[in-house]
Design a protein around this nucleic acid. Structure first.
Length: 592
DNA sequence: CCCATGACGAG
DNA sequence: AGCTCGTCATGGGT
């Protein structure tokens, strides 16, 4: 624990390490780190952030950790790693890739890697049939693995590394846990490398191994995104909110008063009776009372009735303002924007459905009206990059449909598609989206039949996914992510089968697009290392960078070259072209 | 207090 | 219109 603790000389004693060699890391917030490589396990006492920074510089390892969030949090500081950590293997992220579902805690990860049955979920739970509850409760369990080979609960949830234990014991346990992490990573890598290869002409590692690395990088990026935050000009944001919903309420009573004042003119339009606009059932009744025979009160339905009665328009305007008053109002600013002008929320690197990134605090669904408030800080610019028509291009890659591949050579993919379908561009776009989303109603029927003729391979790929969904067979995305369709398929009405079919049809495209996007983001992140530039937002097909003004041109170039490199590996041999639109702006709203 | 539902913002 | 996510408000259960 002393600052003069020995540097981890053992690691280099056997000769120079290979850069990128796996090095498992378990962080003890106050005492040091546990490490494991192919050469053995160690523990090193000292400030963990400094030790990790030193090891990164000297060994350039591929860090193996149970989760980026856990490891980085334990390093302390402001939530960001102490230095740029270039490579990692995130056991939780790779576990989700291999096995799907939402479980990614160390107990589940270890069990899957060791080929054991999934352990009980028991969050903080005491397993009555196993061990002695008292010992488990205070973290005193000596053995990391129980008699069945499962990770002991106290080791899985961190109690075994509780700060109150003697430092020597903690360091020994950290090393042991690092050893288990390394074993789990080795097993995961073997499983990933063993997945069926889809790709025609490999560049670099097998595709699924690349996916595992990109997913790991994305998990670390998710931690960094939360630490960095999105630059948000609070003054502008308050102006926008104020213009929509009025001044900031002084207290709770004032809030109630302002609320009533917003509601009154709208309820008056409905005849002045007592009507709670926030209660959809009451609004529905009121609409029926006015003679509108609608099944619900959704905006897209009411918009068609606008003009028939002034109350409709008033209600829609009220709803829009109310969204800003509640979800994106003063309370939201107070909760999520800090004094340094950054909007922060927790990030997940992969949702449970198809593996897209998600974010809390409204980061993924900021209303367009608020985007002028997302602004570069002094001396900086925002660089916004958008993948163009990424889903159909991804469909071309994963299906290898020759016609669709050829269409990706055009900047506007829908132009050649329209020609192939002998239709106009809007019709072509609807047809492509309808095919990918599994549209069942509407007017895309004729266009879909022509799609079938023009792009039979792509349509067959989608149909196969839909069939798997309906029949409850698991499928994997192009990059190797397991889409679990078997669990939910036990029973249900016909509508449920159709719904699962549409989900699967879409997930093979959406999921593969997420994999490409994360590989791109990881390459961009690597390219920004050592500069003042940071990724500050990931939005499914869009990257937002915050960079010093003088680095703007380099950032633009980086975004393009990173996409070219990523596509060269990810879509190797396919002939598919990916395009990105890149703009340097001061405010997010200025792009596009 | 947890959970389902409706509604809506984004991609 | 088909897909996904997160968030808020309401109302029904425990």
């Amino acid at each position: 624990m002393s600052p003069s603790a020995p540097a981890p000389a053992l690691l280099v004693a056997d000769g120079p390490p290979t850069p990128g060699e796996p090095l498992a890391l378990v962080v003890l917030a106050r005492h040091g780190v546990g490490l494991a490589s192919a050469r053995g396990t160690w523990s090193v006492a000292g400030p963990p952030a400094r030790l990790v920074a030193d090891l990164e510089e000297r060994l350039h390892p591929r860090w193996v950790w149970w989760s980026a969030a856990g490891a980085v949090r334990a390093l302390g500081g402001d939530g960001a790693p102490p230095v740029h950590l270039a490579r990692c293997h995130d056991l939780a992220a790779v576990h989700r890739l291999l096995h799907g579902g939402s479980r990614d805690d160390p107990a589940a990860v270890w069990a899957a890697a060791a080929g054991l049955p999934e352990p009980a979920a028991g969050r903080r739970g005491i397993e009555p049939l196993h061990g002695t509850g008292l010992l488990d409760l205070d973290g005193g369990s000596d053995d990391a693995l129980d008699e069945r080979g499962q990770l002991s609960p106290a080791w899985a949830d961190g109690r075994a590394l509780d700060d109150d234990l003697p430092p020597a014991q903690l360091l020994a346990r950290a090393a042991e846990l690092a050893g288990l992490a390394l074993r789990a990573a080795t097993a995961q890598l073997a499983a990933v490398a063993g997945l069926p290869e889809h790709r025609v002409s490999p560049v670099g590692a097998p595709l699924a191994v690349q996916t595992a690395q990109a997913e790991s990088a994305a998990a670390l990026l998710a931690v960094e995104l939360e630490a960095v935050g999105l630059p948000l000009d609070r003054g502008t944001a308050e102006e926008i909110v104020g213009a929509a919903v009025g001044p900031r309420p002084r207290d709770a009573a004032d809030d109630v008063r302002l609320r009533a004042a917003r509601d009154a003119p709208v309820t008056a339009q409905f005849g002045g009776s007592a009507l709670d606009l926030r209660n959809p059932a009451q609004v529905l009744d009121a609409l029926h009372g006015l003679g509108f025979d609608v099944p619900d009160t959704r905006a897209w339905r009411l918009e068609r009735l606008a003009g028939a009665h002034p109350a409709i328009e008033a209600l829609l305007r009220w709803r829009k303002a109310e969204r800003l008053a509640t979800t994106y109002g003063y309370g939201w600013l107070d909760r999520h924007v800090t004094a340094d002008g950054r909007l922060r929320g927790a990030w997940s690197s992969a949702d449970a459905a198809a593996g897209r990134m998600t974010a809390q605090a409204g980061l993924h669904n900021l209303p367009t009206e608020l985007r002028p408030a997302v602004a570069a800080e002094e001396g900086h610019v925002l660089v916004r990059a958008d993948l163009g028509q990424v889903e159909p291009r991804v469909l071309a890659t994963v299906s290898r449909d020759p016609g669709l591949v050829a269409a990706t050579l055009d900047d506007d993919l829908y132009a050649p598609v329209a020609a192939a379908l002998a239709a106009d561009r809007p019709t072509a776009k609807v047809a492509v989206l309808a095919a990918m989303y599994g549209q069942t109603s509407g007017t895309a029927g004729e266009a879909l039949r022509r799609m079938e003729k023009a792009y039979p391979t792509a349509l067959a790929y989608l149909r196969a996914a839909e069939a798997a969904g309906r029949e409850g067979r698991d499928v994997r995305t192009y990059g190797g992510r397991l889409l679990r369709l078997a669990d939910a398929a036990a029973s249900g009405p016909d509508a449920a089968f159709a719904s699962r079919g549409r989900f699967a049809r879409n997930a093979v495209v959406q999921g593969a697009a997420a994999e490409l996007f994360k590989a791109w983001a990881a390459t961009v992140r690597a390219g920004l290392a050592g500069t003042g530039g940071r990724i500050v937002l990931c939005l499914h097909d869009e990257l937002l960078l915050h960079v010093p003004r003088d680095d703007a041109d380099a950032a633009v170039a980086l975004l393009h070259t990173a996409l070219a490199q990523t596509a060269h590996r990810w879509a190797a041999g396919s002939g598919v072209r990916f395009v990105a639109e890149v703009a340097v702006v001061r405010r997010w709203s200025e792009a596009k």
